[in-house]
Design a protein around this nucleic acid. Structure first.
Length: 507
RNA sequence: GAUCCUUUAGCUCAGCUGGUUAGAGCAUCUCACUUUUAAUGAGAGGGUCCUGGGUUCGAAGCCCAGAGGGAUCACCA
């Protein structure tokens, strides 16, 4: 492998550090006392510009900038919290005759990106920047590749930003080091997940783990990733959803379960789809989809506030300010179509629906049934217009093989999806618990599969057996975590909210 | 899978209609500098111009094929 000039210099520096008798990759614990951020935020200063509360601090991190002025230098150390400036003077770190620690190690052999630890007192410079006056300096780890050097001026303007998307995604570690805003997005993601867990735990739900490797892929309409179990000599699938397993646990007597589920779908990739993505699903016995709408409003309001901090339940998405304070509008699908297109689909048979679709310039193909046609009309004319959180309720039965039939509306099911900023972020039903009805729905799915639909659900006899033992009336819901994070962080691409998005292999 | 855009130094980018030895800033190297902060001043090095063919006296730039990335679309969450 060809190494660049800068890499060669760094390897040469590594050797020379060893020759100085310094281990460039030391093993021992380094006792950090403070983080950069707390020093910058909490340091107090006396008349002499010396810190009164930070007389001796020890910090560690990467050297990210260095400005050498002969016998003294300023540099920046970046740790997990941010950056702090350090001031290094030759005679302070090398008080004796031997000035090698400063002249050789600090000035020559140290490269940007190296890990160092420093101990010293905090003071304020002439220009007013909080800094650490270093008296002890420890080498903690060598960086053999040059990081992109991103500079920011007084006005916060960024120069030479590390912005190549391919490099940022393939080398997320570099992205995280040099682009602090990227780190903020992922910290928000963690906050969001934690807030959801806290909310659900607070409702008394049990967090569970169900199989990712499944013999029968159920619970959603999608193409699975297929693999093979050698010992059992049988095909297996990475889960496309965990729904059927969570329902088995409701059968088993848990009243309320949830799982953060990594799901895998073998389909196209774009800025809202990654082959591997995260959902949160929860199922609660003796509840219906109306209760679930109430709960969804409470949960979203609560978690958005937690992520934003304080009492703010609003996020900016594109140009829209979205308010997650409940209650949200609840709009039956047929009413939504009427509102946005003027067409009434209530009671329309397939031929009438086709005529409506034609008037609305919705492209159809011959294989589509009633449910699919309605879904197409909705997708083309309504979905993008649902900006503030809106529950669309009461879907056609054909699209929802795991959903209980509507208690009063013929041909519909008790299902809702939550739309925000023109995109679906949650899908929920009153769960179908009639095993005889469920078997018929599976049979319809199998029929679709026989006609070539590779996204239909396979028959799951064990799941039916569980339902035959009896499942209480139950409400369930699934949220797409990645899309929720995109919404909360204002990101337009799923790749910006996944640490390691799927990429094609490097050449 | 389709269409369009894109790929030049470690990073961010110029590079005209095809014409000397492919440029800049940062980074790197050498020298100077004890309160700088996009540090500064002086000098230097660094290139598979994504890959492979072709056209041409001559290709980073044109043509063909391929790869990576992005956008839009289709499928989907």
């Amino acid at each position: 492998m060809e190494r660049s000039e800068q890499e060669l210099v760094r390897r040469d520096n590594l050797t020379k550090i060893r020759e100085l008798g310094i281990e460039p990759f030391p093993a021992a614990t380094f006792p950090i006392t403070h983080l950069a951020k707390e020093i910058n935020e909490k340091a107090e200063f006396g008349e002499d510009n010396m810190s009164t509360n930070y007389q001796e601090v020890t910090v560690a991190g990467r050297l990210m900038a260095r400005r050498i002025m002969g016998k003294a230098a300023f540099a920046s150390i970046q740790d997990s919290s941010g950056r702090v400036q350090i001031y290094v003077s030759r005679d302070d770190i090398a008080p004796g005759e031997d000035k090698a620690l400063y002249n050789t190690l600090f000035k020559k052999l140290l490269d940007l990106g190296d890990f160092i630890g420093v101990t010293g007192h905090v003071f304020k410079t002439r220009t007013g920047e909080t800094s650490i006056h270093v008296k002890e300096f420890t080498f903690l780890g060598k960086s053999l590749r040059p990081l992109p050097v991103v500079k920011t001026d007084d006005e916060g303007k960024v120069y030479d930003a590390f912005s190549d998307l391919e490099l940022r995604y393939r080398q997320r570690y570099v992205d995280l080091i040099v682009n602090p805003k990227v780190k903020e997005v992922f910290l928000k993601r963690t906050k969001l997940v934690t807030a959801i867990r806290t909310f659900l735990d607070g409702m008394g739900m049990i967090e569970v783990e169900t199989p990712i490797l499944q013999a029968i892929h159920g619970g959603a309409a999608a193409r699975p990733f297929a693999t093979h179990h050698n010992t059992l000599d049988m095909p297996m699938y990475l889960r496309i959803a965990n729904e059927l397993y969570l329902k088995r646990l409701i059968v088993g007597g848990f009243d309320a379960v949830y799982e953060f589920s990594k799901n895998f779908r073998n389909e196209g990739m774009d800025r809202t789809h990654n082959p591997e993505f995260t959902a949160i699903e929860f199922y609660v016995a003796y509840k219906d989809y109306n209760w679930m709408m109430d709960t969804t409003e409470n949960m979203l309001e609560c978690i958005i506030k937690a992520v934003n901090g304080g009492d703010n339940a609003k996020v900016m998405a594109d140009e829209h300010e979205i308010n997650f304070t409940g209650p949200y509008r609840r709009l039956p699908m047929a009413d939504a179509i009427k509102e946005f297109t003027g067409e009434d689909i209530n009671g329309a048979d397939e031929d009438e629906l086709r005529a409506i679709a034609k008037r609305l310039h919705v492209a159809l193909d011959k294989t589509m049934g009633r449910g699919k046609i309605i879904d197409e009309i909705f997708g083309d004319h309504v979905e993008a217009k649902l900006i503030q959180p809106t529950f669309i309720t009461d879907y056609p039965v054909e699209m929802s093989p795991l959903t209980k039939k509507h208690r009063s509306k013929e041909g519909l099911v008790e299902r809702f999806e939550l739309f925000v900023n023109g995109k679906e972020i949650a899908n929920s039903y009153s769960e179908l618990n009639d095993p005889i009805d469920q078997r018929e729905r599976f049979e319809e799915q199998v029929e679709l599969a026989n006609r070539g639909d590779d996204e239909s659900m396979p028959m799951d006899e064990d799941f039916l057996r569980a339902l035959e033992y009896g499942m209480p009336p139950t409400a369930g819901i699934g949220f797409g975590i990645d899309r929720l994070v995109m919404l909360v962080t204002g990101q337009k691409s799923i790749q910006e909210v996944l640490f390691f998005p799927q990429m094609k292999p490097e050449a």
